[in-house]
Nucleic acid binder design. Structure first.
Lengths: 242, 242
DNA sequence: TGCGATTTGTACGTATGTATT
DNA sequence: CAATACATACGTACAAATCGC
C-alpha cells in the first residue's frame, strides 16, 4: 500500500507523477514527516527520467507539500496554517463584475509632509513630501468604498501632476507600479460619524478596513486605506493543493 | 536599452536569468503586453542552454509576470489585481507567537442534520449528519476568538468519537485533513449581545468574521466561522514579486 | 578527522510534439 | 503547408549537502 502509486495517463508525465505523489499526502495516508520516495525510486517506479521526476517533486516542494533535503531525502511537510490567496482586485473591477455601474468621486487632494498625521505609519524620513488623496467609489450610484491614499512623492513624483479627478488613484498607481511589493493588514472597525455619512450607513456599523503598504525598489511608495461596509463587501480567498 | 539585461553572478544561473528578465518588468520599463525575448534569444544573450532559460521563464509564468504562448512568444502580463497571500495559522499559534498563554474552552457540542440552522450554507444533502461545535479561545486569560464548527460526519466520521473538550476542533481537523481545498470569506460585523458577552466587548463592536469552507476529496468536510474582536486581531498578507 | 555513499540541485545537449500564425 | 516558439522528455554530468563509518 505504501507504494500503490499509479499514473492516470492524463496530461504530461510530470503532472501525472506530481498527482500520484500528491494523492497520499492530501489524503493523509502519508502523514507529515513521512519519507517520500527518492527520485531514483520514482524513476524506477514510473520509468521516467530523473529530470521529469525532479520537476514533479520540485513543484510539490514549491507548493509546500514536501520538504526536500539533500542526502536525507524528501518528507511530507508539516501542515502549518493555511496560506490563502486573496484576490484583491481594483474596486472598479469588483463593482463591474457584479454588473453594476461604477463611478468615482474625488473628495480631497492635498500635499503634506511625512511625520504629520497618519503619515507616521509610513516609515520614511520626516519631511518627505506626500500627496494625500481621499476618494469615494460608487456601485450603481450607492457608495461602496472609501479610500485614503498617501503617495510618497519622492518615489512617485509624477503623481504631483495628476489631478485624480477622473482617474481613481488606485488604478493610476497600479498602472505605474506594476507588481510592487505590498503588505496588507485587514481589520474591522466601527464607522465613525463622518465615515458613516459618506458610506450612507448608520454610525457604528462594522466596516472592513484594508491597509496596504507598497514599495517600489525597496522605497515606500504608497500607503492606502480602503474601507468597505462590512456587510456589503467580502474579501475572499482560496487554498487549493494543485 | 531594450536588451541591457545582465546577470549578476549570484546564485544559480536560472535564478539570475529570472531576475534579469524580472527587473524591467517590475520597474515598468517593459509595460504589459510588451514582448519578452524568446528562449532562443535569451540562450544567445546569456550563453545558457534552453532548459535553463526555459526554467527561468516558466517560473516567471507561474508567478504571473509573463504570459507564454506558442508561436507568438511571451509577453509581459497585465497587472490585474493583487493576489495577496494571507497566512491563516491556528489560533493557538497566533496567540503563542505573541508570547501569551493560550487556552481553550468548549462551549457546546451537539449533533445536527443538514438543512437545519446555519448548515444550509453547506451544500450537502439534507439529512446529512453534522457535528456542531462552539468554542472560545483565550490569550493570556482574555477571550480572543469565538469559533463555530460544522463538521460533516459523512466525510469525517471519526469526529463522532472525539469529545473536543481538550483539543480545539481546528487543530483536530488540521491534523486529519492536511491540505484540504478551502475557501475563505472575510467580512466585518457588529457583535450581537451574546457574542459581545463571550468576547468581553461592548455590544455592537466591529468584529472580523472569517468563514472557511473546506473539502476533502471533493466532499464538503467542515464549515467554520471564526470571530475576532476587530481591534484585537488582523489578517495580514503579502504580495512580493520574487 | 577524513572518506565514501546517498540524495537532491543545477546545467548541459538533444529530440520530438504541439499550438499558432 | 511551413515556420516559429513553447512544452515535454530523455540521458548525462558534476556539484553541494549530509549522513554513517
Amino acid at each position: 500500500m505504501t507504494d500503490s502509486l499509479a499514473l492516470d495517463g492524463r496530461g504530461p508525465l510530470h503532472e501525472q507523477i506530481r498527482r500520484a505523489v500528491c494523492a497520499p499526502i492530501i489524503s493523509g495516508a502519508w502523514p507529515p514527516g513521512r519519507r517520500v520516495p527518492s527520485e531514483h525510486e520514482l524513476m524506477a517506479l514510473f520509468g521516467a527520467s530523473r529530470m521529469t521526476v525532479n520537476r514533479a517533486m520540485r513543484t510539490l516542494a514549491d507548493d509546500g507539500l514536501i520538504v526536500r533535503r539533500r542526502r536525507t531525502g524528501s518528507v511530507v511537510a508539516a501542515a502549518t496554517g493555511d496560506r490563502a490567496v486573496m484576490s484583491i482586485g481594483s474596486i472598479r473591477a469588483t463593482v463591474e463584475a457584479g454588473d453594476q455601474t461604477y463611478s468615482y468621486e474625488s473628495l480631497a487632494r492635498r500635499h503634506a509632509r511625512a511625520s504629520d498625521d497618519s503619515a507616521g505609519r509610513f516609515k520614511i524620513a520626516a519631511g518627505t513630501p506626500l500627496l494625500n488623496l481621499s476618494c469615494r467609489h460608487f456601485a450603481g450610484g450607492r457608495p461602496t468604498a472609501l479610500e485614503d491614499h498617501w503617495i510618497n512623492l519622492a518615489a512617485v513624483p509624477e503623481a504631483s501632476d495628476e489631478p485624480f479627478d477622473k482617474t481613481p488613484p488606485g488604478e493610476w498607481l497600479a498602472a505605474r507600479l506594476p507588481w510592487p511589493k505590498s503588505q496588507y493588514v485587514v481589520t474591522a472597525l466601527n464607522a465613525g460619524a463622518a465615515m458613516a455619512k459618506l458610506l450612507d450607513l448608520a454610525p457604528g456599523t462594522a466596516c472592513l478596513k484594508i491597509d496596504r503598504r507598497s514599495w517600489r525598489n525597496g522605497v515606500p511608495a504608497a500607503f492606502v486605506t480602503t474601507l468597505y461596509p462590512g456587510t456589503g463587501h467580502a474579501l475572499t480567498g482560496e487554498v487549493a493543493p494543485p
